[in-house]
């Protein structure tokens, strides 16, 4: 018997007013699996990612994480979110706190860890993402790539079951993309369960177990990276790939 999947998305629909951004989405993510979500802008991939930790509320359908349905806003939802790390396109580091304070805030406030212990673990995580020397700097003093690595460390500090990446490299200069992807590839290799919304096809090819291709609010294709990139099944995916891989 295979263990139950970590994330189950069932028949999810999301409307923003008249806009129908997610249409009957079904998706499961197994433990230790990396699922990369790609697709054109406006296809709903970021919204899907944000629905998984309920930063956006679904209009209908059901999402469960580790067998628990996403609760309504409140303490139970906060507890669940503590187990789901989120990395944003715009980093969203706390501007008034140092890098180390950014990383220790969650463990101290939510996990009730002692300050010293949180500090020690935070420093280790910063070392792991290669910015231990920036521990006492403020976010604005770091480059984009360093900020995003700090944001990844902040999410990891909670010891999450699942990591969500919402276009983590889209706001970065080309030479900084690699340093962030390197960290993500390492996480994937360690068996972290990840849902990654990205335009980085190289990352999808090398780190994903499955690729979900979204268009118009639907998952139109779901396949292994080899199959998706080499033999896309749908015309829409073929068209998309021909446009982004042409150069």
């Amino acid at each position: 018997m295979t263990p139950a999947p970590l994330v189950v998305v069932e028949k999810v629909n999301k409307h923003f007013g008249d806009l129908h951004v997610l249409r009957d989405i079904d998706l499961t993510v197994d433990r230790g699996e990396v699922v990369v979500v790609i697709g054109p802008s406006g296809s709903g991939k970021s919204t899907l990612c944000r629905c998984i930790n309920r930063l956006e509320r679904v209009t209908s359908g059901r999402i469960t994480i580790d067998g628990v349905a996403l609760p309504e806003e409140g303490k139970a939802l906060a507890r669940l979110r503590a187990d789901v790390g989120m990395v944003f396109q715009s980093f969203n580091l706390f501007a008034h706190k140092t890098i180390l304070q950014n990383v220790t805030l969650g463990p101290i406030k939510v996990r009730k860890l002692a300050k010293d212990e949180a500090r020690e673990r935070g420093l280790k995580l910063l070392e792991r993402v290669g910015i231990a020397d920036k521990a006492d700097r403020y976010p604005a003093e770091l480059s984009g790539g360093q900020q995003q690595r700090a944001a990844i460390a902040r999410a990891l500090a909670m010891g999450p079951k699942l990591m969500l990446f919402d276009e983590p490299t889209s706001a970065l200069d080309p030479e900084m993309i690699k340093e962030v992807l390197d960290v993500m590839v390492e996480l994937a290799a360690e068996g972290t369960t990840m849902v990654v919304v990205t335009h980085e096809m190289g990352f999808a090819r090398s780190a994903a177990r499955r690729v979900a291709f979204m268009d118009g609010g639907r998952i139109v294709e779901m396949a292994s990276p080899e199959q998706f990139f080499d033999q896309p099944q749908t015309d829409r995916a073929k068209d998309f790939l021909s446009k982004i891989l042409a150069h």
Binding site: L55, R81, D83, F88, N92, F94, V110, A155
Partner: peptide, 14 residues
């Protein structure tokens, strides 16, 4: 910025 509160909520802060 709204992202600040979103990041805090994502960490599980009430």
């Amino acid at each position: 910025a709204p992202g600040q509160a979103e990041a805090a909520r994502s960490l599980g802060l009430t």
